[in-house]
Structures are given as structure tokens and as C-alpha cells.
């Protein structure tokens, strides 16, 4: 026979299980819906989905999203190194010298940067980059994306570095490593898994951002451009525009594009897990 305490424990476990399920069900539903709808479209379009231009509004052909794929790849390639390098150095500085005035300012700026609406960042970059360059460009889009992703990357990296027990830092200093040596040879390698996850989340943030590109990238969908100074498109921009349109074909393209983006995240997630091994403390 159950005592009241055991019964209460069982009830609590059930409650937690039900609440967890309630949180997971919408996410799983979303992922399955996007993958099923999206891959139906991609299967219908075939390889053309990756190589062709988007369809005309009343076209029956699904066409492709080549300009958006190239644009997203180009802007990610430009934006990611800038973001990761700046965020990692900022995280190292604020972790190693937490009371330093520069560290305090960087920390405050990073936190406030995260709360600026992304559309406002897009407008600022429009004023500072797009207008002087006299045109939209992948570079302007990438800079806007870097500004958006920087505080997120910084938060991931600084949390990763701060989570390392102080005893390893002390061990590094005790064998006469300098501060830089301790960071590069001990702290970063120990935190490599968390840092890799931080890089992954930064890629996800860059690849999935829409509003930052509204006034910067240029929605160039009539051709494929590999130039950073030319206008470009991005997958989230295309999804945003096409899903709001009244055309059935464009809705289908948007599903396909969303599935592709989601698949990219899933592949990156598992690749990171497989490639970067966790350090067992």
C-alpha cells in the first residue's frame, strides 16, 4: 500500500512528465509539419529547387530558391567569423578581467545590444552602410546580422568560460602558464563543446534572422550573385515575403525553404555533437 509521501512523489513525477510533454508537443508538431510539407514540395521540384530562380507569381512551376540559398550562405560566411572572433575575445576579456572598466562596459553594451529590436538594427545599418554605399548588399546584411548575433554569441561564450571550475585556471598558473596560455591551452579546450554549441547557435541566429535584412540585403531574386557588394536574398526573407503573398505556388516554395533551413539546423546540430567531443571533468 502506498503511503501519502510515496503517492505525492508519484503525482509530482506525473505532473512534471505531463508538463514536459505539453512543452514538447508543439515543438515536435512544428518540426514534423515543416518537414512533411516542405519535403513534399522539394520532392516535387527535384534538384531544380536548389538551382533555379523563384517562380513567377502565377506560375505552376515551383522553381527554386537558388538566390536565397547563395545569399544566406554568403552572408553567413561573412558574418560568422566577425561575430565569433569579436564575441570570443569579448568573453575572454570579461571572464579574465571581470572588474576591468573595459570589461564592465563591454558586458553592459552586449546586454543592451540584445534588447535592441532587430528592425532598428536594420535601419541603423541602412543609414550607416547602405546609404553611403548607394545600394543594398550582402555585406550590409552580414554586418546587420553580426550586430544581432554578437550579444548571443558573447553570452554563450562567456557562460561557457565562466562554467569552468577555478581549479583548472589555478593549475595552469601553477605550472607557470601566462594568462593567454591558460586561456588558449586550458580554458578554451575544456570549454570546447560549449563554445561549439555557441557557434552553432550563432549560425542558427544568423541564418534564421529576417528583420535585420529588410533594409540591408536587398531581396535580389532575379539572379544569383556571389559578390558581397551586390544585393542579395536570404532564405528567411523569402519565406517571410512568400508566405504573406496570395499565390499558392509561393506558399509551397516557402514551405520548401523552411524545411531546408530546418534541415540545415538539424544537420549542424548533430554534426557538432559528433565532431566536438565533450571534455569529461
Amino acid at each position: 500500500m502506498y503511503s501519502w509521501r510515496m503517492l505525492r512523489e508519484k503525482l509530482f513525477t506525473c505532473l512534471i512528465a505531463v508538463l514536459s510533454l505539453l512543452a514538447i508537443v508543439p515543438i515536435v508538431h512544428l518540426i514534423i509539419a515543416v518537414l512533411i510539407n516542405g519535403f513534399t514540395v522539394i520532392a516535387k521540384a527535384g534538384i531544380n529547387f536548389f538551382t533555379n530562380l523563384p517562380p513567377a507569381p502565377l506560375s505552376r512551376e515551383i522553381g527554386g530558391i537558388a538566390p536565397s540559398i547563395i545569399g544566406t550562405a554568403l552572408m553567413t560566411i561573412i558574418s560568422l567569423p566577425i561575430t565569433v572572433v569579436l564575441a570570443l575575445f569579448a568573453a575572454i576579456l570579461t571572464t579574465e578581467f571581470p572588474r576591468n572598466t573595459v570589461s564592465i562596459i563591454i558586458d553592459a553594451v552586449a546586454k543592451s545590444l540584445a534588447s535592441i529590436p532587430t528592425i532598428a538594427v536594420s535601419m541603423i545599418v541602412f543609414t550607416l552602410i547602405v546609404m553611403p554605399m548607394k545600394g543594398f548588399s550582402a555585406l550590409a546584411g552580414a554586418i546587420a546580422l553580426s550586430i544581432i548575433a554578437l550579444p548571443y554569441a558573447y553570452t554563450y561564450f562567456s557562460t561557457a568560460l565562466r562554467s569552468i571550475p577555478a581549479m583548472y585556471r589555478e593549475a595552469a598558473f601553477s605550472i607557470a602558464m601566462g594568462r593567454w596560455g591558460a586561456v588558449m591551452k586550458v580554458l578554451i579546450p575544456i570549454a570546447r563543446r560549449s563554445i561549439a554549441v555557441g557557434v552553432l547557435m550563432t549560425i542558427a541566429r544568423i541564418m534564421g534572422e529576417t528583420a535585420a535584412l529588410l533594409f540591408t540585403a536587398g531581396r535580389f531574386r532575379t539572379g544569383v550573385s556571389f559578390s558581397p557588394t551586390s544585393p542579395a536574398d536570404a532564405i528567411p526573407l523569402l519565406i517571410f515575403d512568400y508566405i504573406l503573398s496570395p499565390y499558392e505556388t509561393w506558399h509551397q516554395v516557402a514551405w520548401g525553404a523552411a524545411a531546408l533551413l530546418l534541415l540545415a539546423y538539424i544537420v549542424l546540430f548533430f554534426a557538432t555533437k559528433l565532431i566536438v567531443k565533450e571534455v569529461k571533468l
Binding site: 583548472y168 593549475a171 601553477s174 586550458v186 571534455v279 569529461k280
Partner: peptide, 17 residues
């Protein structure tokens, strides 16, 4: 510190090496 070795109370070998 190049002249002085130290062993701590809690074993702290570098876990990634």
C-alpha cells in the same frame, strides 16, 4: 612559478589532455 611546483587539495589534472 617556473621554480615552484604545486599540488592542490582537489586533484586537478587537465581533463582535455
Amino acid at each position: 612559478r617556473k621554480l615552484i611546483g604545486m599540488v592542490f587539495q582537489v586533484p586537478n589534472p587537465f581533463p582535455h589532455l
